[in-house]
């Protein structure tokens, strides 16, 4: 008898620990559990017994490299494998100083390597961007656009903070206009208008036009995130630097910007993730990146009605890539914010 009351007390204690305090709580929890359970079993049931995964398994190559020539498909595959490998080493290994440096350099080399492998050129056969597609196109669009947008964003942020009135006004105008237009419009007109802006006879291809549009769009958003970072660097830091005789340029370069960038890492990560998701908009404008290629697969009469399978599969890929980016950024942030006493909890 004594033991039973003890057990019940222990159960009640456990229940309280997960937030069940009274009968209403118990009731709600019960209903929720049933709901969650039913949804989960339905979903799993569908995944394992009803879904027809042929639409995924028979087109795996297409999802990852698009219509890239079969014989050369090792090139995009190699690139993606290196990215995956690098991500996992960065995430899983505890790294010392030298290895950190090495990995840092590897990440910087990912973009030129990707361009070289996909586009070809010296020593390997050139492949037109018309054949790029799938996840490899999604990734390269994201990486290149971010790497272009970041320095522009920094300059815009500094411009908007500047006390030179003309520079401040022009950068503000640019940032505010860019931020009020929908991305799809920028992309559409980027495709349509860039030929008009260029000198007669000069032409650039669709992928480069897309990168151009993404960069000018995202740079405006990035600049606002960095401005937020700049504003949260405490005033006494600037004062301390002044006292040491540093000039304005040096104060920005050594004291304010590094701290602002560290503060802005979470916001910048969100921009990168947002950009990766938004590359899917190019599906509307005729690029066959991950979503675009899926739409053409779904248009194939053979796979009619397989929308749900394809969308679940795509959601999984996007979710995985975005989550990996988020984790990488967390790692970087933790590394840097160790030093900032007003950021992070390490």
């Amino acid at each position: 008898m004594k033991i039973i009351t003890k057990d019940i007390k222990f159960l009640l204690f456990k229940a309280r620990k997960i937030g069940i305090n009274n009968k209403t709580d118990l009731f709600i929890t019960f209903i929720l559990l049933v709901g969650v359970f039913a949804t989960l079993t339905n979903f799993l049931n569908w995944i394992f017994f009803h879904a027809n995964w042929e639409v995924v398994s028979r087109n795996l190559n297409l999802y990852i490299i698009g219509t890239y020539p079969k014989a050369l498909s090792w090139r995009p595959f190699l690139w993606i494998s290196i990215i995956i490998l690098l991500s996992f080493t960065t995430l899983l290994k505890k790294l010392n100083y030298i290895k950190k440096r090495f990995i840092y350099i590897c990440w910087l080399l990912i973009i030129p390597l990707g361009i070289y492998l996909l586009a070809g050129g010296i020593n390997i056969i050139p492949i037109s961007t018309n054949f790029w597609g799938g996840l490899s196109l999604t990734l390269i669009l994201t990486f290149i656009s971010i790497i272009i947008a970041l320095p522009i964003g920094i300059l815009l942020a500094l411009g908007r903070q500047s006390n030179l009135l003309i520079i401040k006004k022009i950068t503000s105008l640019y940032i505010d206009c860019m931020r009020s237009v929908p991305l799809i419009a920028i992309l559409f007109f980027g495709q349509l208008l860039t030929p008009l802006l260029l000198p007669v006879g000069m032409e650039i291809n669709r992928v480069i036009r897309a990168i151009f549009s993404f960069s000018i769009f995202v740079s405006a958003y990035i600049s606002e995130d960095i401005r937020g970072g700049l504003q949260s660097v405490p005033q006494n830091q600037i004062e301390a630097a002044k006292v040491l005789g540093l000039n304005k340029y040096q104060i920005n370069k050594f004291i304010v910007l590094p701290q602002a960038l560290i503060i802005a890492i979470p916001a910048l990560t969100n921009q990168a993730i947002g950009l990766l998701q938004n590359t899917s908009l190019m599906a509307i404008l005729g690029l066959v990146e991950l979503l675009g290629i899926s739409r053409s697969i779904l248009a194939n009469p053979q796979f009619i009605g397989s929308h749900l399978e394809v969308y679940v599969w795509l959601a999984l890929i996007y979710w995985l890539v975005c989550t990996i980016i988020a984790l990488l950024a967390k790692k970087i942030e933790r590394h840097f914010s160790k030093s900032l006493n007003f950021q992070g909890d390490l």
Partner: peptide, 17 residues
């Protein structure tokens, strides 16, 4: 789930599925 997948994909899902 919602924040790590593209809006466009979600819209297509609601529409077609």
């Amino acid at each position: 789930i919602i924040r790590q997948t593209p809006l466009l994909l979600q819209l297509l899902f609601w529409y077609f599925v």
